[in-house]
């Protein structure tokens, strides 16, 4: 599988994403945001960071960069798109995923390990995940997922909620919700199931030396 890691001005998790994809056999290359053609790739990853300084709203300006037109076409063709952290924010701003990501409820930038419950293991991003909580770090100031009641209902009906913040024992509780996200939502897919957005950083959890390698399951699911 050939993958593209999109680099925006202000991306800062692009090297981690490149490393994780390559390490797990997804043959990654960096692609500058002015690129208009993604036809040679099977997977596009939008990495974390602070594209365009998070000006206006996180992801609001990156969403209009040249490459995002190509990413929209790429997604509509059914190919795999994964957006992590700022990448998730760009995907919701671009309308490829529903909802919005708002300032954390406690107003702080939160950088810590969290645990994720896999709510839907029938997606291309989650099918190899074992039945246990994944330990994966978060690092964001704007990660509070919000969607209106009708949108929330539709997310549930279509099994689009993939990850929710949980305890190490895999229970979804209010105390396990780090940022005030609606219903502990940490990651969702689009209706078609080929676009994943998540606030936690699986690319920072692929080696046990760095505290956890649970993120590998997500990258390994792609070829499982």
């Amino acid at each position: 599988m050939k993958s593209a890691v999109v680099v925006f001005p202000g991306s800062n998790c692009d090297h981690d994403m490149h490393h994780a994809l390559n390490m797990l056999g997804h043959d990654a290359e960096y692609v500058w945001h002015k690129t208009a053609d993604l036809s040679e790739y099977d997977l596009v990853a939008l990495p974390g960071g602070f594209s365009y300084g998070d000006y206006l709203r996180a992801g609001a300006i990156a969403r209009f960069s040249t490459i995002m037109k190509a990413v929209v076409g790429f997604a509509k063709s059914g190919k795999t798109v994964i957006g992590v952290c700022n990448g998730f924010q760009i995907l919701v701003e671009a309308g490829l995923l529903p909802g919005a990501l708002m300032r954390n409820a406690n107003l702080r930038f939160i950088c810590k390990q969290v645990y994720l419950k896999t709510e839907n293991s029938d997606t291309r991003f989650s099918r190899a995940i074992p039945d246990q909580a994944l330990q994966i770090p978060i690092a964001h100031g704007e990660g509070r997922y919000f969607i209106d009641p009708a949108g929330y209902e539709s997310l549930q009906e279509n099994n689009q909620i993939v990850f929710r913040y949980a305890t190490p024992g895999n229970d979804v509780t209010e105390a396990a919700n780090p940022n005030g996200s609606l219903d502990n939502i940490a990651g969702i897919v689009n209706r078609e199931g080929n676009v994943l957005g998540m606030m936690p950083h699986p690319e920072r959890a692929v080696e046990s030396l760095l505290g956890s390698d649970d993120g590998r399951w997500i990258f390994e699911s792609l070829t499982a």
Binding site: L56, R57, A60, G99, A100, I147, D148
Partner: peptide, 8 residues
């Protein structure tokens, strides 16, 4: 299109 996010 840009200045406001009408979702929120």
């Amino acid at each position: 299109k840009l200045l406001a996010n009408t979702v929120i």
